[in-house]
């Protein structure tokens, strides 16, 4: 009970600190995720046309996610990027690639061959096939991939403070250093809330972007 009370007190006494860390956390999630979307989606689309690209692209993304998150952070330091926001963002970006690559590929390759054959037979160009057929039909699958990338990134982002990137993780570290459970909670609670909010939001986006004809 006292723990909750102390935590509550920390929230009311240091709203600025919590807000600053939460905002940092948001950047730590949004920037790598946006970059991962911008790189992974077009690259994977290209790989659905030029099949031999898929092996290397997926292999790389897979490797990035297979490396334990801590090791990936350490790797950033090891390759000479030092500590701070930049190596953290890079690590988070690499970590977020895999689910997006996987779902983009699966989504586009999963479009009914009959639909694609009919579309080609009616005279779509390969761009039109992508924009008018494959993208709309694969979009909800791609969004689902972005959603899992987001959840993974939010979790990983709290670790990024280990290499000095700030965010809610650093609040948690600080609390652990001071053996103050209330400060740890002050970092943990916003992180959890953030994760749930993001998850709920992406769920909505996924539903909205599912074409009406595909909704059961």
């Amino acid at each position: 009970m006292t723990l909750l009370l102390h935590t509550y007190q920390f929230f009311t006494q240091h709203p600025g600190t919590i807000w600053r860390h939460t905002l940092q956390q948001l950047y730590l999630v949004a920037i790598p995720l946006a970059a991962a979307i911008l790189v992974a989606v077009p690259l994977t689309m290209l790989a659905t046309r030029v099949r031999r690209l898929y092996g290397p692209v997926m292999g790389f993304a897979n490797a990035m996610q297979t490396i334990p998150s801590l090791a990936l952070l350490a790797l950033m330091i090891a390759i000479g990027l030092g500590i701070g926001v930049l190596p953290a963002v890079l690590a988070l970006f690499l970590y977020a690639l895999m689910p997006i690559v996987r779902n983009t590929y699966v989504g586009i390759m999963g479009v009914d061959p009959g639909v694609k054959d009919a579309a080609r037979g009616m005279g779509v160009t390969s761009w039109q096939l992508l924009w008018m057929i494959e993208m709309p039909l694969a979009l909800h699958v791609i969004i689902a991939g972005i959603r899992s990338a987001l959840v993974a990134t939010i979790g990983f982002a709290t670790l990024a403070s280990l290499i000095g990137a700030g965010g809610l993780g650093s609040l948690i570290m600080e609390g652990m250093g001071l053996a103050s459970n209330s400060i740890v909670l002050a970092g943990t609670i916003p992180a959890i809330v953030l994760a749930f909010l993001a998850e709920g939001l992406m769920g909505r986006v996924e539903r909205v972007l599912t074409p009406r004809g595909l909704r059961a």
Partner: peptide, 12 residues
Amino acid sequence: YVIQRIGLMPHL
């Protein structure tokens, strides 16, 4: 062009 698999665009 008409095919056995029909291939209507499900999103249209």
